[in-house]
Design a binder for these strands. Structure first.
Lengths: 194, 194
DNA sequence: CCGTCTGTGACACCGAGTGCCAACTTCGCC
DNA sequence: GGCGAAGTTGGCACTCGGTGTCACAGACGG
């Protein structure tokens, strides 16, 4: 189990490395699966045994951030309200992005520019909301309509994610701006942050 | 000009009618373009001259609602704040959906269930935010950071759209609920509605 | 040494989408 | 009314993403 899986993970990383080099050079859509498989030294058919599709190469990266945000949200004080807690949970991801801005800025721009990645973006949004909404639910003021608590949590979480995306776009398009300030601005415009 | 265009529009409607019948019967992804073209009595190649892609058949419907929301938002009193104005602008669309719930509920469920439509959903979201954000901007409290006003408007608009989507999902999955109440609940959980 | 299990590559296939070209219709103009 | 231009159509071939199938190679334990 462990030996085989370790090798598999190593191969996945290797393939992804080649793929991202090609994406950076020619863009996502213009890079064909054959080119990636070729660069990685494997057959096209084998590529699809390691990745369900070309978009999984991109999704992989985005899911990491989701987990990071989720664990950060779990570690916020339990009595903190949902909106400021979500803002705080985004901080770690934001910091990482600003540190590696030479990598993450082009990624953000690619996500906006490539129509072929729109399905991937929607998938990411769903995964994030699915993961974060249960944690958000516990931070909402309790009401008598308990059956709608899931919907409320989903709405608040999706709104926060939408603010994060808006801030990320603005940050990617305007070099020199602070992603943290942009996010404070975006989320603060929707609801007070404390 | 007008004669040709009128015929073209009529053909588009005719094709769309056949397509939606097939979608309802077999689902979106399971319906091939060949089947649609066949049902409409035209060649596959000609279909692609009327629609840029299979997904345009779905997007067409969703864009209408966006325009409806935009005109509703334009007609709200100018001094109304962004959040309640957006809530009110959604009302007309909501009413239409509840009236034609035998059609719109399956559409909502299809949008969630078909992975092939995720790119279409993301496209709709962008079109709506692009259309509504300028109208939202005028309703935000003015600050000194004028250069970020676009980002704030995008964040608020995208949050409202996210709430609408959350309410629509809950409504589609729970027959007998009121879409208006669900939306009040969702948007009210994010920010006060008045 | 033999059976088995896994990874791999090759081939064929499907569906979405596009470029190209030949045939046909429609329209306007002489 | 005829004639040429312009637009519409359909067929063909092609690209690209993705899947099913099969046959082959190597690792493994009995």
């Amino acid at each position: 189990m462990s030996l085989r899986d370790h090798a598999r993970e190593a191969i996945r990383d290797e393939v992804a490395k080649h793929a991202w080099t090609l994406f950076a050079a020619h863009g996502y859509e213009a890079t064909t699966v054959d080119q990636i498989a070729d660069a990685a030294g494997m057959s096209r058919r084998t590529f699809f045994r390691y990745f369900a599709g070309k978009d999984e190469l991109v999704l992989e990266r985005l899911v990491e951030s989701g987990n990071l945000i989720a664990t950060a949200l779990e570690q916020r004080p339990a009595d903190e309200a949902a909106w400021p807690a979500l803002r705080a949970a985004f901080s770690a991801t934001i910091r990482l992005q600003e540190q590696h801005h030479e990598k993450s800025r082009p990624l953000q721009l690619m996500l906006r520019a490539e129509p072929a990645l729109r399905a991937t973006i929607e998938t990411r949004r769903r995964l994030w909301v699915e993961r974060l909404a249960p944690l958000t639910a516990a931070r909402l003021p309790s009401t008598d309509a308990a059956d709608r608590s899931g919907t409320r949590a989903a709405a608040v979480t999706a709104s926060a994610v939408a603010c994060l995306e808006a801030a990320q776009i603005a940050w990617a398009e305007n070099p020199g701006t602070s992603l943290g300030e942009l996010l404070d601005d975006a989320m603060g415009a929707v609801a007070p942050l404390r």
